[in-house]
């Protein structure tokens, strides 16, 4: 496929926004590279080139967001998912849900308690198995993957942020952020470096050695977000990630989510909070285990 757009940054850097999943990843990386270059220039006080770079970055992000991907470029698909629970009577926690998640998506799943939001998230996050239907990760049926390989997929491809008590209390922020890298088998020096970068990215570069009881609720969620993106996963799932936070901290965390999404990180967030949903580009409303409607913004 030919390049659709070329952005000339300077003599050395070019961004190619191409079609195709592979190219989307490349584009994501290029945008991240631009972001870093911009941060570097700003830190050095070179305001004019930094401003120019910011403009280029915006254009690149816009192009990336506008890029139309074909079906095969979907990163995760849930096909007619069903989850049946026997609690005396049979309850369909999910009743035929189908959903495509594309690279760069920022999705909110909303609905009343018991509507199946968290169950859907657990299915898509490979934490639970559907009673019927399929989950396709990058086109591959997850059901066909051996169960013992699922932890590896979760550590490399998926990130998770939960509602509260999200961090391991005996570990520092840095050690918490290093956990998925440890489980992916990355060597210590490299994972320390990567976790440090992720924490700097979420604005906690000065809290590396603090434990969770030394951090505010918002800071703890930032560490959890850093931990979820440290491995550059395909998707980050957030289950009520602002549920325990006040409105200021919620806005703070969501602006971070937005910032990371702009860099190309895909997010799927289950929430009750309309303020959180407002930040997202796709809002999926669920009721009685089904998708009631989807709003694109």
């Amino acid at each position: 496929m030919a390049a659709e757009t070329i952005l000339k940054l300077d003599n050395a850097m070019k961004i190619y926004i191409l079609g195709g999943r592979k190219n989307a990843k490349k584009a994501q990386k290029a945008i991240q590279k631009l972001q870093k270059a911009h941060e570097k220039l700003s830190a050095k006080g070179q305001n004019a080139p930094a401003a120019q770079l910011k403009e280029t970055l915006k254009q690149a992000q816009l192009l990336f967001a506008q890029e139309k991907y074909e079906d095969s470029y979907k990163t995760l698909t849930g096909k007619t998912l069903k989850k049946r629970r026997d609690r005396g009577a049979v309850v369909h926690a999910l009743n035929g849900v189908s959903l495509d998640i594309k690279i760069g998506d920022l999705i909110a799943i909303m609905g009343p308690s018991g509507s199946g939001k968290s169950t859907l998230l657990n299915m898509l996050g490979l934490l639970d198995q559907p009673t019927a239907g399929q989950v396709l990760l990058k086109g591959q049926n997850v059901e066909l993957i051996k169960r013992r390989h699922l932890p590896e997929i979760r550590s490399k491809e998926l990130g998770f942020v939960f509602q509260s008590f999200n961090l391991v209390p005996t570990l520092t922020a840095l050690e918490n952020a290093m956990l998925p890298l440890k489980y992916s088998g990355i060597r210590l020096g490299r994972r320390r470096q990567m976790a440090k970068e992720a924490l700097v990215q979420v604005g906690l570069g000065d809290r590396l050695n603090h434990r969770s009881n030394e951090l505010s609720g918002g800071q703890q969620q930032r560490v959890a977000i850093a931990r979820s993106v440290v491995n550059s996963p395909s998707i980050v799932f957030g289950d009520e990630l602002t549920g325990e936070l006040d409105s200021k901290m919620t806005a703070d965390v969501m602006s971070l989510v937005k910032k990371l999404n702009k860099k190309g990180q895909t997010f799927v967030i289950v929430t009750h909070n309309p303020e959180v949903a407002k930040v997202c580009r796709r809002i999926i409303y669920m009721k009685d285990g089904r998708i009631e409607k989807e709003v694109k913004r």
Binding site: R154, F165, V168, Y183
Partner: peptide, 16 residues
């Protein structure tokens, strides 16, 4: 228990 759940969710294997 919750901590173990989180660790498993983010990729901890049986051996970890």
């Amino acid at each position: 228990t919750r901590e173990i759940g989180i660790k498993k969710a983010i990729g901890a294997k049986t051996r970890h």
